Lab assay of single mutants.
Amino acid sequence: MDALKSAGRALIRSPSLAKQSWGGGGRHRKLPENWTDTRETLLEGMLFSLKYLGMTLVEQPKGEELSAAAIKRIVATAKASGKKLQKVTLKVSPRGIILTDNLTNQLIENVSIYRISYCTADKMHDKVFAYIAQSQHNQSLECHAFLCTKRKMAQAVTLTVAQAFKVAFEFWQVSKEEKEKRDKASQEGGDVLGARQDCTPPLKSLVATGNLLDLEETAKAPLSTVSANTTNMDEVPRPQALSGSSVVWELDDGLDEAFSRLAQSRTNPQVLDTGLTAQDMHYAQCLSPVDWDKPDSSGTEQDDLFSF
């Protein structure tokens, strides 16, 4: 819950932080000083300027060897085509990944977070970031790969997607708890209302004896509580940590079903599988986004697919 609360507080303090972009060759504004600060901008989305290598189908939802083989196929196909790589912007948030063309600003792909089953910074092609997700059109699994400016960037994108998945799962947990509370309150309110109706004398007997209905007592009954809980029953509950912020979080049926399955089948359902080692994760978390744009010590960066 700490990640969720800190993310909400950060967004309320400075929503404009989320509009910064990394990996864009110096076009961005001043960047936060450390990885923790940038992680807090996830709610509205972190932007990464990358190059799209392509996509291939895979048979399993996750796995280092599986993704490595898929990336190898994608890279080989991209090299064989001889075409310049498409420059894209990857927007990562707890909602998922939005992929747009840098030149036309046209939407290429919009992947809900619950469809993503794996992401990684490839070991062999260490400047490549990739994720595996279920197609929104059918049940097939797709591996999408992107060329980053350097290994640090690939690791940073991988960690960002993993963190977005974690925050999304926490949102789901909060929403589920809130819905259970509202359902319980609604049920209790309905029981109270039913009890009051059972003990209320029939209207005919009131008229016969000349008694008047006590409207004041009726007004004191917990009807307002019942209506408050039943009027918006169809509205999706939102985490309290975000009250007053500009973010509107809505959970669709697909996300609810997917996270429910994860909660039942996995020990740590909030953790998205990645190909990063503990050492890689520690190294990337210690980086400032400013470091992502620094040239690798191995030599001059080449803006070309064939540089790796």
Rank of each mutant, 00 (worst) to 15 (best):
D2E: 07
P289V: 01
Q173C: 09
L213N: 09
S175R: 13
G190Q: 11
A10G: 14
L42R: 15
W22C: 13
L99Q: 15
N229A: 12
K87F: 10
W249P: 10
V161K: 00
A208E: 07
L193H: 03
L276I: 03
Q60K: 12
V226K: 06
W172N: 02
E40V: 03
L17N: 13
Q173Y: 08
Y118S: 02
A78S: 15
T104M: 09
R182Y: 10
S175T: 10
V111D: 01
A156N: 07
L223K: 07
K181P: 12
T230F: 11
L147H: 00
I98C: 14
A70M: 02
A154N: 00
D273Q: 08
T120G: 02
A156G: 05
H28I: 13
T100P: 00
T41E: 12
G299E: 07
S224N: 12
A284R: 09
T89P: 00
A18N: 11
L17K: 14
Q173I: 11
S288L: 07
L141V: 07
P94H: 02
Y114F: 07
K176P: 04
K166Q: 13
G26D: 12
W35R: 09
E235P: 08
P269G: 04
Q20D: 10
M233F: 04
N138E: 11
C143D: 00
I97G: 00
V75S: 01
K30F: 10
K184F: 14
H125K: 00
L159W: 09
P61N: 14
T41P: 11
L47Q: 08
T160I: 12
N232I: 05
L203S: 06
E142R: 15
D37N: 13
K83M: 11
F169N: 02
L43M: 11
T300A: 09
A162G: 04
L193M: 11
K123T: 11
F171G: 07
Q270E: 01
E64C: 13
E301H: 08
K84F: 05
C199W: 08
T209E: 13
T160F: 09
T209L: 05
I12M: 15
D198G: 07
T38N: 14
R9A: 12
E40W: 02
E216C: 03
V271S: 09
T104P: 04
E170F: 08
A168T: 05
L255R: 05
F165C: 02
E217L: 12
E40D: 14
A185M: 11
Q187N: 03
S298E: 07
K204Q: 06
D280H: 05
W22G: 11
T218L: 06
A18T: 15
M281E: 05
A258L: 03
S265V: 08
A263D: 03
D280F: 02
G190P: 12
L272T: 09
L43G: 08
D126F: 00
E250K: 10
L206T: 14
I132M: 10
L147I: 02
R27L: 12
L215Y: 12
K176Q: 15
I113S: 03
V161M: 03
A10E: 15
R238F: 07
W22M: 06
A185V: 08
L90W: 00
Q60L: 12
Q60C: 08
K181G: 13
L66D: 06
E178R: 12
L262H: 02
Q270A: 06
A70L: 02
C199R: 13
A195I: 03
A258D: 01
I74F: 00
K79T: 13
P289G: 07
T267L: 05
S186G: 04
E217T: 14
A156H: 05
R13P: 07
T218N: 08
N211M: 07
R266P: 02
T36I: 14
Q155I: 13
D126L: 00
G299I: 10
A154K: 00
Q240V: 04
A164P: 05
T274M: 03
D256G: 02
Q60R: 14
V128R: 00
E301Q: 07
D256Q: 04
K51C: 01
R13G: 14
K127P: 00
V236E: 07
Y52R: 01
E177L: 14
G25P: 12
H137Q: 15
A121F: 01
L66E: 01
L11Q: 12
E250H: 07
E65S: 05
T200I: 09
G210H: 10
L43F: 10
P202F: 08
A133T: 09
K79A: 01
A3C: 09
